[in-house]
Nucleic acid binder design. Structure first.
Lengths: 150, 150
DNA sequence: CCGAATCCTCCCCGATACTG
DNA sequence: CAGTATCGGGGAGGATTCGG
């Protein structure tokens, strides 16, 4: 059967994937917490009083996040035991997100990273512009050289 | 034309995007350094003697990274002034990547995060399994309830 | 009004082949 | 050894719609 081959391929691929995960399972976790929104959300929660915030508070605090990504990220954080989700079935509905002890721990680290980004933004920006300028100059030089050759 | 509408949309979207970047430029930088490969590469370089490594040393040290991602990430890090690239035009060619002072600074933070991931992996993993089990149980219960209702 | 689910597009990333 | 160019798939994520 042709499908048999495809299945075999799938199995093989899955085995390889599992082998990779077994080889380095922490890379998976690192990738999760290295997510852009994770950093912003956990930092925001870490700065809040009682490490607690409502859903729309987070939405307003973090500029440019869509509801989808907010929900998605919060769900994955809840799944990993980093935040706790509390639903208060009043009208209108109220949902609070709170950093767990584990999450609070990570929050310190990610806040440091966020802080670093804010502190060194100018420096990085300067480096970036200089580098781009040099690259443009090199390109221009190369182009001029090509012109001269032509 | 229909394409005109699409173009207008693109322009609009781009304007909104630029406005967002101007509103919160540090989010941009945070997203960059929150990249999965950035974390791994900078940590690896941070652990190395002299904070220096060759291209293929990095490739071997970091499991599952493709040459493309390695090159791409190193380029962006170089552009941001976090790593320095040194070419030694011998045969065979030799290229060394080295953390700058700025990058070394960040390296400490990212190494901490990586360390955290390694230390708390079991904990997170346990939370994850428990959460998944509860979700499955809830689903089963809901299904049973539906069956009973029917 | 707040929070979640759906659709659809674009971009990121991995695999492959080729240069110096 | 150290990259660069190209293609194709899959998933991220934004706009929109639905539920309570």
């Amino acid at each position: 059967m042709a499908t048999r081959t495809a299945e075999a391929h799938r199995e093989e691929a899955r085995a390889a994937y599992d082998a990779f995960l077994k080889e380095c399972p922490t890379a998976q976790l690192l990738a999760r917490i290295s997510d852009k929104w994770v950093g912003l959300i956990v930092s925001a929660l870490g700065q809040a009083e009682d490490r607690t915030m409502r859903y729309s508070e987070l939405g307003r605090k973090i500029p440019g996040v869509s509801q989808k990504m907010l929900t998605q990220t919060l769900r994955s954080l809840e799944r990993d035991g980093l935040v706790a989700r509390t639903v208060t079935p009043t009208v209108p509905l109220r949902v609070d997100y709170r950093l767990t002890e584990l999450g609070s721990n990570l929050g310190c680290l990610l806040s440091s990273v966020k802080q670093w980004a804010e502190n060194h933004f100018d420096e990085v920006s300067a480096h970036r512009e200089r580098h781009d300028a040099e690259a443009a100059g090199a390109d221009a030089g190369a182009a001029a050289g090509a012109d001269a050759a032509a």
